[in-house]
């Protein structure tokens, strides 16, 4: 029997989907119509300054509060119609640690296992395995009051993983952590994604979004002001340039002539900004090796010695500042 298959370009399965999500507290609008599409098995970063509405978005998507308007679904379950079904597939780790401070780490994990009804022995096994995986085995039975911020956050995430959620919300998971703890947490997030988990991350650290996320949504004032991959967002703002430093004014003047004489970067006419006091010449560049080489070749050909050279590529900071207004 011949099986007819219709070859179509199927869109990737969406794990989180919101349409015109709205929330206001009194007269203060917190979310002003949010549309999100998060494909399964990816990391989505919601990036924004304090007060942009990041935590409110997470609280709505994790069934803690209800939206005033719009639709949202998580793993195919409508938030308003089937919050219980959503709760069965999600895990949440917020910026305020949600551990029981009066219990030990092991007891916290066993509590989670009992609430997920894993059964006594499997629950204890799972707790022990997570303690091991998160480097908490040694401190497992000590009071949590003796834990560092990083250990606490790891325990928090371990508790979230007890129920093996397919979708995890991480609300500013590394806020207040030292760089080392932050890196450890990133490594864990990467492992989870490798296992097929979908991660919804909020952060105000651009580096974090850059490191982890496939797609980034920039939230500002309750609206998504930009969305795309890291590369796409970076393309939104100009600002990349090469700065060449010279030994003396004579070399600088000669260089300015040599560089301006020909349109060199990206075949465009280069606008060279010369700073006589700093003895530098600055010209636009996308930061590629090619553009770098072409600058150096020109200077070489003109016999001008270069003291120093630096490359500035547009980073998410530029994007962030350009998109989220100049409130700073």
């Amino acid at each position: 029997m011949a099986v007819m298959t219709k070859k179509t370009e199927t869109a990737p399965a969406l794990t989180i989907m919101t349409t015109d999500l709205r929330k206001a507290y009194g007269r203060k609008t917190v979310l002003d119509g949010i549309d999100l599409r998060v494909p399964a098995g990816t990391v989505f970063a919601l990036l924004g300054p304090n007060g942009a509405g990041k935590t409110t978005t997470v609280r709505i998507l994790s069934t803690l509060i209800e939206a005033d308007g719009g639709q949202a679904s998580v793993a195919g379950h409508d938030l308003a119609a089937a919050p219980e079904a959503v709760r069965r597939v999600i895990g949440v780790t917020g910026q305020f640690s949600a551990v029981d401070n009066l219990l030990s780490a092991r007891e916290n994990l066993i509590l989670m296992a009992d609430l997920y009804r894993l059964g006594r022995r499997p629950g204890r096994h799972r707790a022990a395995a997570l303690l091991e995986r998160f480097g908490l085995s040694e401190a497992a039975d000590q009071p949590i009051s003796t834990y560092s911020g990083g250990m606490r956050r790891r325990l928090d995430l371990a508790m979230t993983l007890v129920g093996e959620p397919r979708v995890i919300f991480l609300d500013e998971p590394t806020a207040g952590l030292d760089p080392r703890s932050r890196r450890e947490l990133w490594a864990i997030v990467r492992e989870l994604v490798a296992d097929g988990v979908t991660i919804f991350l909020t952060t105000q650290y651009l580096e974090e979004a850059d490191q982890l996320a496939g797609l980034i949504g920039v939230l500002d004032g309750g609206r998504i002001v930009a969305e795309g991959t890291v590369a796409e967002l970076k393309r939104l703002v100009p600002g990349g340039h090469i700065t060449v430093h010279f030994a003396g004014p004579a070399a600088l003047t000669a260089a300015a002539v040599a560089l301006a004489a020909t349109g060199l970067v990206n075949e465009e006419r280069a606008t060279v900004a010369v700073d006589g006091d700093a003895l530098t010449a600055q010209l636009p560049s996308d930061g590629s090796i090619g553009s770098l080489r072409s600058v150096l070749d020109r200077l070489d050909a003109a016999g001008i010695a270069v003291e120093d050279l630096s490359v500035h590529t547009p980073d998410l900071d530029d994007v962030f500042l350009a998109l989220t207004g100049d409130r700073r």
Partner: peptide, 13 residues
């Protein structure tokens, strides 16, 4: 106020 109850609320509890 310590956040653990908010965790319970996001679980099938």
């Amino acid at each position: 106020t310590e956040g653990i109850v908010d965790r319970f609320r996001t679980m099938p509890v």
